[in-house]
Amino acid sequence: MKGVILAGGTGTRLYPLTKMINKHLLPVGRAPMICHGVEKLRNAGIEEIILVISKQSAGLYTELFGGGKEWGVRLTYKIQEEAGGIAQALSLAEPNMKRDEKFVVLLGDNLFEDSLTPYVQSFQNQGQGARVLLKKVHDPKRYGVPILEENKILRIEEKPAEPKSNYCVTGIYMYDTTVFNKIRTIKPSGRGELEITDVNNVYASEGQLAYDILDGWWTDAGTFQSLYQASDWLMK
C-alpha cells in the first residue's frame, strides 16, 4: 500500500510565517510539520510515499528528505502548479498508482496521536470503497460533518449551520483507485476548486464510505493557535 501526503497550499492563516516558507515545513515540536505524516505512514508499514508540494520551498523539501532513505521510505515528489483544491492535488498521484491499488492520503497539516496501523488494516479488509477517520469535536460547524448510519456515512455536510453529529471528517482518507474517476466527475466549487468532500460524497452515495473514529488528540495545524497546541502536545 502506498501513501500520499498533500502539502501544497499557501498557508494564508499563518502569514507572515508562510511568506517565505511553505507551512508544512514550519516546526511543530522537534521537527518540521511534514515529518510527522511521513513517520505515521512509515510506522504503519507504508514505505512508498508520494509527496505533493507547491513550487514554493520545493528545494527545501528535497534538502530535508532527499529520496527518503534516511527516513526509511521511498519518496516521489509531485508539484501542484496552482491551487486547485485537495481533490485536484490528489489526482496528481494517479500515474504512480497500480490498477485496483489501495492507498492512504494525509493532509500535511493534520497532526494526530493515533497509530494508523489498525485503521489501515481495517481498510485492507474492507473490500471496495473508501474510508475516512473522524474525530469528535466541540465545534463541528467549522468542519465537514458526517451523517452516520451504523458503519457507513450517508453524506458529509460542509460547515453546516445545524450539524447532525458532533464529529468532523479529519484530513486522513483511504481510497481505492476508483477515486480518480470520481474526481473526474465532480465540478469545481464556488471557490473554483475540486473539493474532497464532493469526492467522498460520491462514495457515500454508493454506500461505500466507511469510517473509524480517532481515539487520541488531533488537530489541523493551520492556525497560530492550533500550531502552538500541536507543538505542546508533541513536546509532551
Rank of each mutant, 00 (worst) to 15 (best):
S165W: 01
V105W: 10
K2S: 04
S231N: 11
A83T: 04
W217Y: 08
V145I: 09
D220G: 00
N43G: 10
V73M: 05
G144H: 09
P140N: 12
L134M: 04
T223Q: 11
A130W: 02
D114N: 08
M33R: 14
K78P: 00
A7Q: 06
G144P: 00
E94M: 04
L60T: 03
L111N: 08
Q124W: 03
I46M: 03
R42K: 15
I34L: 06
S57Q: 09
G108Q: 02
R191N: 13
E101I: 07
L90M: 11
I5R: 07
G45M: 03
E195P: 00
K23Y: 05
A44C: 09
A44E: 11
G216K: 11
G72D: 06
E206M: 13
K141C: 09
A204V: 06
K187Q: 15
L92P: 01
A130T: 10
W71F: 15
V120S: 07
E206D: 14
I5T: 05
S189H: 01
T219G: 06
T185K: 13
A210D: 13
M33F: 01
D100H: 09
L209E: 02
P188V: 12
A87P: 00
Q229F: 11
V132Q: 09
N151Y: 04
A58P: 00
V73K: 08
E113L: 01
V104K: 00
Y61P: 02
I213G: 00
P160S: 10
Y167T: 02
M20P: 01
R155L: 12
R42G: 03
G222M: 09
F123D: 01
A204G: 10
V73Y: 08
E150F: 03
D212H: 08
A87F: 04
L106I: 08
L60R: 09
T223F: 03
T18Y: 10
G84Q: 15
N43M: 13
E157G: 01
L92N: 07
M1N: 06
R42S: 12
P118C: 05
K98G: 06
L60F: 02
G59R: 08
N200T: 15
Y203H: 11
L6P: 01
E206A: 13
N151K: 10
I46E: 00
D220P: 00
L75W: 00
E113V: 03
N43V: 02
M20E: 15
N166R: 13
E157N: 09
E158L: 13
T10L: 05
I147S: 05
K55R: 15
A230C: 10
A58Q: 14
L148S: 01
K78L: 14
E63S: 08
R155P: 00
R131P: 01
L6R: 07
L92F: 05
P27K: 13
D198Q: 14
N125V: 02
D220S: 09
A221W: 05
D198F: 02
K102A: 05
K182G: 05
I86F: 06
W218G: 09
L214P: 01
I172W: 04
S189V: 04
W71T: 10
L60I: 08
G66C: 07
E81W: 08
V120I: 11
S231M: 10
T223H: 11
N181L: 11
K152V: 14
N110D: 11
Y167L: 14
K135G: 09
Q225F: 07
M97H: 02
A210S: 13
W218I: 14
L107N: 12
G84T: 13
T12H: 12
E101P: 02
T117A: 13
S91D: 13
